[in-house]
């Protein structure tokens, strides 16, 4: 059974600037034990999508479609059921662990809290023991349970977030830019830790990042988002090795390839900014920044269609079978 499924999910914020669509019809699926990577620039809707899963978006956000966790629609379930599913069905490793932890509460208590919330029979002493065991599991000394967040380094705090996410043995973990703020060495350790836990426990993992190198190292499938839509999807290594959408290609080219001096001197950046979601261009939303755009791109918005095997792309050029990279 599919662990997590997004069906035509739309998220629209209503604010002083009117209605702003942040996510515009996303369909994605994830099996247990698999890792799904979601890539894209800031503001493309990836974090909004992540927060929509546990309905953590502010009231100004309107969510439509279906988000199924083990076949149960999270968007329509009652508050009581939703609270029960939060953290036991799916948990989140938030970005920016300094602010995501309560500054005036000890680490151990914060890790133990969800256990006590979801298991009324559990004693505080037992929960504290289990919290210490979790800290040990993510490579922190159990004595750290008595520390406050500011007494830890960035990497340690991110480990605490992971330990916390594991507290209720969830079926699904969402890692939202979980390693972005960390230096490369710590990032590698944390990634290794996360992938190890996925294999060991058979949970599903949604990994959200703008860093393709992180995603290609850990994910089974990858989805690239642009302006609130999935523009390319497929097996991770294929998406990043041979992009079938000009945006994924540009995203990949923005990272210099180690050992290739030519790419280092000339990182293939992408001019311009992602479009303002309040004023999207006509036709394909990527057209203004696209190097391979054809006339048709200004007229209609391309659907996400199969281009070969398990590869999906929302690009007219790729759907014609043409290469999406110039030169």
């Amino acid at each position: 059974m599919t662990l997590l499924e997004f069906r035509d999910v739309h998220v629209t914020y209503t604010g002083s600037r009117g209605r702003v669509p942040a996510v515009r019809g996303v369909d994605l699926a994830l099996e247990a034990g698999q890792v799904l990577g979601v890539a894209g620039e800031s503001g493309c809707g990836k974090s909004t999508l992540a927060m929509a899963v546990l309905r953590l978006l502010p009231k100004s956000a309107e969510v439509s479609g279906e988000i199924l966790l083990d076949g149960e629609d999270l968007l329509t379930m009652g508050w009581g059921r939703l609270r029960a599913v939060r953290w036991t069905g799916a948990s989140i490793v938030f970005q920016g662990a300094m602010h995501s932890l309560n500054a005036v509460q000890r680490i151990g208590r914060q890790v133990a809290e969800p256990m006590l919330v979801h298991d009324k029979d559990l004693s505080a002493a037992k929960a504290a023991k289990r919290a210490e065991a979790l800290l040990e599991r993510v490579g922190l000394p159990p004595s750290r349970a008595r520390s406050f967040p500011h007494e830890l380094s960035g990497g340690q705090r991110q480990r605490v977030m992971i330990a916390m996410a594991l507290a209720c043995d969830p079926d699904l973990i969402i890692a939202d830019e979980a390693t972005t703020a960390l230096d490369v060495m710590v990032q590698a350790q944390v990634l290794q830790l996360i992938s190890g836990l996925v294999k060991e426990r058979g949970v599903g993992l949604v990994m959200i990042s703008h860093d393709l190198s992180v995603l290609s190292a850990t994910c089974d499938t990858a989805a690239v988002m642009y302006a609130g839509k999935v523009v390319e999807q497929g097996p991770a290594h294929e998406v990043f090795a041979r992009a079938r959408h000009p945006y994924s290609a540009a995203l990949g080219a923005a990272f210099p390839v180690i050992g290739d001096p030519a790419s280092r001197r000339n990182p293939g950046g992408l001019a311009g900014d992602p479009p303002d979601p309040g004023r999207l261009p006509e036709g394909c939303s990527f057209r203004p920044r696209c190097a391979v755009a054809v006339e048709r791109c200004g007229e209609a918005s391309p659907e996400l269609l199969e281009v070969e095997g398990a590869r999906l792309s929302a690009c007219f050029v790729a759907q014609e079978g043409e290469p999406v990279v110039l030169g």
Binding site: L56, R83, I92, L101, N102, E113, P114
Partner: peptide, 8 residues
Amino acid sequence: TTARAKGL
């Protein structure tokens, strides 16, 4: 948000 996500 973390606290809410935990199911409190």
